[in-house]
Simulated scan of single mutants.
Amino acid sequence: MKKGFKACLRDFLGLDGAHMKGPYPGQILTAVGLDSNNGIYPLAYAIVEIENCESWKWFLECLGDDLDLHAMSNFSFVSDRQKGLLQAVSQLFPCAEPRFCLRHIHENMKKQWRTKEYKDHLWDCATATTVPEFNHFMHQFSLYDKSTYEWLKSIPPQHWAKSHFTGRATTDMLLNNLCEVFNGKLVDGRDKPIISCLEFIREYMMKRTCNVLKVQQKCVGPLTPTATKIMEKNEAAATQYIAEWCGDEKYQVKGPWNDQHVVDMHERIMVSVYKSSILMSTRCTGYKLGKLHMGTRWNQIKGRALWPRSECPMQITPPPHRNQPGRPKRKRRQSMEEKSQSKSQSQSQRSDVGPSEIHGHGPHGSGKLTRKFVSVTCSKCGNKGHNSRTCKGQGGT
Rank of each mutant, 00 (worst) to 15 (best):
Lys2Ser: 12
Lys3Thr: 12
Leu15Ser: 05
Leu15Lys: 06
Lys21Leu: 07
Lys21Ala: 03
Pro23Cys: 01
Gln27Asp: 00
Ile47His: 15
Ile50Asp: 04
Asn52Lys: 09
Ser76Pro: 02
Ser79Ala: 06
Arg81Thr: 06
Leu86Asp: 14
Leu92Pro: 06
Leu92Val: 10
Pro94Tyr: 08
Phe100Ser: 09
Glu107Leu: 02
Tyr118Pro: 00
His121Val: 10
Thr127Trp: 08
Val131Ile: 15
Asn135Leu: 02
Asn135His: 09
Ser142Asn: 13
Leu143Asp: 11
Tyr149Leu: 00
Glu150Phe: 08
Trp151Gly: 03
Ile155Cys: 06
Ile155Tyr: 05
His159Pro: 01
Ser163Leu: 07
Thr166Tyr: 07
Lys185Met: 05
Val187His: 05
Ile194Pro: 01
Ile194Ala: 11
Ile201Pro: 02
Lys207Ser: 10
Lys207Trp: 08
Thr209Pro: 00
Thr209Gly: 05
Pro225Gln: 01
Ala227Gly: 05
Thr228Ile: 10
Lys229Asn: 14
Lys233Ile: 09
Tyr241Met: 15
Tyr241Ser: 04
Ala243Asp: 02
Pro256Arg: 13
Val262Gly: 02
His266Pro: 00
His266Ile: 04
Ile278Pro: 04
Ile278Gln: 00
Arg283Asn: 12
Gly286Thr: 04
Ile301Pro: 01
Lys302Arg: 07
Ser310Cys: 12
Cys312Gly: 01
Cys312Met: 07
Gln315Lys: 15
His321Lys: 12
Pro328Phe: 06
Ser335His: 07
Met336Pro: 03
Ser346Leu: 03
Gly354Lys: 15
His359Ile: 13
Gly362Glu: 00
Leu369Thr: 06
Val374Ile: 13
Ser379Pro: 03
Cys381Val: 14
Gly385Trp: 06
Cys391Pro: 12
Lys392Cys: 02
Gly393Leu: 12
